[in-house]
Write a protein that binds this DNA or RNA. Sequence first.
DNA 1: CTGCGACTTTGATCGAAATCAAAACAGGTG
DNA 2: CACCTGTTTTGATTTCGATCAAAGTCGCAG
Lengths: 248, 248
Amino acid sequence: MGKFGLAETHLTCGDCPIRHRAVCARCETEELAALEETKYYRDYEPGQTIVWGGDEMDFVASVVSGVATLSHTMEDGRRQMVGLLLPSDFLGRPGRRLAPYDVTAVSKLTLCCFRRAPFEDLLLSTPAINRRLLEMTLDELDAAREWMLILGRKTAREKIASLIAIVGRRDAALHMMRADGQVVFDLPLTREAMADYLGLTLETVSRQISALKREGVIRIEGNRHVTVPDFPRLMEETGDDTDGGLLS
Amino acid sequence: MGKFGLAETHLTCGDCPIRHRAVCARCETEELAALEETKYYRDYEPGQTIVWGGDEMDFVASVVSGVATLSHTMEDGRRQMVGLLLPSDFLGRPGRRLAPYDVTAVSKLTLCCFRRAPFEDLLLSTPAINRRLLEMTLDELDAAREWMLILGRKTAREKIASLIAIVGRRDAALHMMRADGQVVFDLPLTREAMADYLGLTLETVSRQISALKREGVIRIEGNRHVTVPDFPRLMEETGDDTDGGLLS
DNA sequence: CTGCGACTTTGATCGAAATCAAAACAGGTG
DNA sequence: CACCTGTTTTGATTTCGATCAAAGTCGCAG
């Protein structure tokens, strides 16, 4: 929150319903206006690949709506998700043309794109955007490192609880928690995608979700719609320290 | 390599035998000179904790010599390494005072430290350093994401091969490969630290190293000194695509 | 409503790594 | 040199999650 005293002043970009975290009011200059003109939108269908690992990416983008994933795939088909992009998240690595992993839409997805060249020009002339991107990259790094703990040391049950807590917390922050303390949201991922996130098989994911359901930790209607009646109870299952992570 | 056209021009800092990747010749200004004056060195013994997770860190630093690790610890003692710092690596997160995980020396270690306040002042006034830090953070993020694939989807044997390949490649780049193609280096980690890196137990680490030794993929003298007679052969064991990773 | 395909759950069995336990091996010290 | 402590190796057994297999749902298109 405002590590450089800027974070509260995002600019809502043109017709986008979200706030672009990479480009904010403070950065408003002629260059930014020029950038606006290179902006374009792109829609993707569920399952569609946006970029293949190794491809050139000639743009950077913000997620306007929907969910996308970053994932590594090994030749034999084993897959590991390494990033999850929700609305307002940024896609692209300034200064690096080659995508190191696959980017895939897991739902209907709209991106707001900027061409690489003018964006990098803006980067050179506008230090504030550089600082913002450093901030955002540090956040991604924190998330990746928390994820490493999940992958390396947590049990299947703890992994599932952690994922539900992460998505639930992020959604709750957006949509407001319900007055009675229940947290209600839709899982944006299939069981298979959850498995790829957590380094499990989809059968194990399903079994652990069933177990948490059976024990009343969560409730689920129709495969995706989740209710967490008692969030602290869920947090106990994650194996994390009880404070729930003050880190970000 | 010179993503912003700067990377080749690091400044060797004062008496430090290493190059500080965060602070380079291009950044040379009065501010940098001021920063130099706040510089100080600190030595640590193997096993010594440099920062505890949650502590305030009032400095940033470069590793001059030795090896340090970043790791998460759960209350019940499970531990996961999330970062490995070798000479010339940078420690510290500009704009963030609280350390999110433990930093521990695993060998004799010397840090070259800068106080936080003047360093962040420099950051505000010197865009080139900002760009450099963004570069370095993106490298860390790439490393973390490759690590996630290792943790989530690789077998114990592939994990060990990957770790030896990573350390070997990094050392080989530094010390030069031997003419006959053999790669020779010292593992900077105990079996336990390797286990914490890879999300395994130390017994499994030991067994897999023994297996690779038995099959002639590696040779080891006295617990730490490793010889890889045929690097491509080792790479086959990592499960990675044969190109060995053009990513960094 | 009916039927189809994709997604999900559940069950039975297997196997890789964890755990428990002990022996062997450094490598430093008196 | 012999001892001592911490690290590493090896062995026996258990366990959690993977794998193989089948049945059950969901949600949609006709």
